[in-house]
Design a protein around this nucleic acid. Structure first.
Lengths: 215, 215
DNA sequence: GTCTATACCAAGATAGAC
DNA sequence: GTCTATCTTGGTATAGAC
C-alpha cells in the first residue's frame, strides 16, 4: 500500500536502487532469503557491499521493500475493474496474470515461514491480501453465473474457492520445488491454467466447457 | 528405504538418540531448519551440545536421518494393502493417515528449497516418493470405480490427481503459513478432508455423495 | 554516492578430559 | 556416553576516507 514504486524519472541513485531490487528478486527466487548473502546481492548488482548498505540499512529492509512491491502489484491486480461483458478467455487472461505475479515473487510464498520469523508483521499483510482477494473473485464468479457460464451451489462455493486459492498460489511453488522448474515457460503456464480449469470444469455450463476444450 | 527406524529394545544411548530425533522434529516443524540451531536442539533434548555431535556428526546428518524416517513411513503407507471390499470411510481413513504423516513432517514440505540446497540428493528421493505414490492411488480409484462409488473420464484423471496431490501436500503448509495454525486439531484435519472431498465430489456417484454428506 | 577496511557475532563443529 | 572449552567460518553491519 505504502510502497515506493519504481520512480518515473530515474536519476543515477534511483537506477542503482532499482538494479539492487531487481537483482535481489532474481537471487531470492533462485535460492531463498537464507541462502542469499548481502555480498552476493552487491556483487550481482555490480556495487560494493558497503554501498549496498547506503541504499538499504539492513537486509530485512531490502526484503520488506520487495514485499511492498508485491503487495502493490497484487492490490492493483485485484482492484482493476473487470468489465461486465467478459468473454471466457478474459478469465483465462486474469489467471495468467496472477500466475505471472506469483511466479515473479515466488520466494515470498515458498519461503514464507522464514520471512515471517524475520518480520512477524508480514503475517497480517499476507492474510490481508487473501482476504482482499476474496471479494473480486466472488464478484467474478457472480459475473460468470449471470453469463450462464457456470452453475455452482452456494454451499460448495467456499470449498472451491479455498482449493482454487491453494492451487493458484502453490502451483508455481509446486513447479519450482517439486518439478525443479527454473524458468516459467508458456507450457508450464498453460499446465497451471488447465489445473485450475479442471477444478472449475465440473461446474461449467456445456457451452463453457466446449469453449474450454478448444483452448 | 535404508533408514534406521527406532530400535525395538532401546538402551540408554538409543533412548538419547530417539529423544534427539523427536525433539528435533518438533523444533524443525515449528521454526524450520534455518532457524533451529544445534544448541537449541541439544538444550531441548537435555544434553550438551558436544554430546549431540556424538550422535550426529553434522546437523545435516541429523536432518537426513529424519528424512529417512519420513520416507520409511511413506513407503509403508503406500505399500500397505488396501483390501478389496473397502467401505467409503476406509478411503477417508487413508486420507487422514496421509495428512497425519504430512503434518508430522511438515517442515520437509514447507522448507524443501533450503533442504535441497543442503542435500541436492533429496530432490531425487522426493520425486521418487511422488512417483511411487501414483500407482497405489490409481489402484484405489480403480477400486472405487468397481464399487460404483466414482465415475471419472480417463482424460480428466491426471488433472484431478495433480490437484489432489497439491492440496494434500500443501494443505498443511497453507494452514501453517496462511492461517497460523500451530497444532493440527481434529477440526483442521476434517477441514482438509472436506477440501479433498470437494475436489472429488463432482465425480462421485449419488450414493457416495449422500454418504459424504453424513460425515 | 561509492569504496576499503574492519568490527562483531552467531552458529557449526572439534579436542580432549572425565 | 557425556561434558567443558575452544576454534573457525561466514555473514551482517559500521566507520570513515574518497
Amino acid at each position: 500500500m505504502t510502497a515506493k514504486t519504481a520512480p518515473a524519472r530515474a536519476g543515477r541513485a534511483d537506477l542503482t536502487r532499482e538494479r539492487v531490487i531487481a537483482t535481489s528478486i532474481a537471487l531470492l527466487n533462485e535460492r531463498g532469503p537464507d541462502r542469499v548473502t548481502t555480498a552476493q546481492i552487491a556483487a550481482s548488482a555490480n556495487i560494493n557491499e558497503g554501498n549496498l548498505y547506503y541504499y538499504f540499512k539492513t537486509k530485512r529492509a531490502l526484503i520488506l521493500c520487495i514485499f511492498d512491491r508485491f503487495e502493490d502489484e497484487v492490490v492493483q491486480f485485484f482492484d482493476k475493474d473487470i468489465g461486465e461483458a467478459a468473454a471466457p478467455d478474459t478469465y483465462m487472461g486474469f489467471l495468467r496474470e496472477w500466475f505471472d505475479i506469483v511466479w515473479r515473487y515466488r520466494f515470498l510464498h515458498r519461503d514464507l515461514v522464514g520471512l515471517l520469523a524475520m518480520a512477524p508483521d508480514l503475517r497480517r499483510r499476507v492474510r490481508a491480501i487473501s482476504t482482499h482477494a476474496r471479494a473480486p473473485v466472488v464478484r467474478l464468479i457472480e459475473q460468470m453465473r449471470r453469463a450462464r457460464l457456470i452453475d455452482i451451489p452456494e454451499r460448495e462455493l467456499d470449498a472451491l474457492l479455498a482449493n482454487a486459492w491453494i492451487i493458484a498460489t502453490y502451483w508455481v511453488v509446486y513447479l519450482d520445488v517439486q518439478k525443479g522448474v527454473r524458468v516459467l515457460r508458456k507450457s508450464h503456464m498453460e499446465w497451471g491454467l488447465r489445473q485450475i480449469a479442471s477444478l472449475v470444469a465440473p461446474y461449467l455450463s456445456t457451452s463453457a466447457r466446449d469453449w474450454l476444450a478448444t483452448v
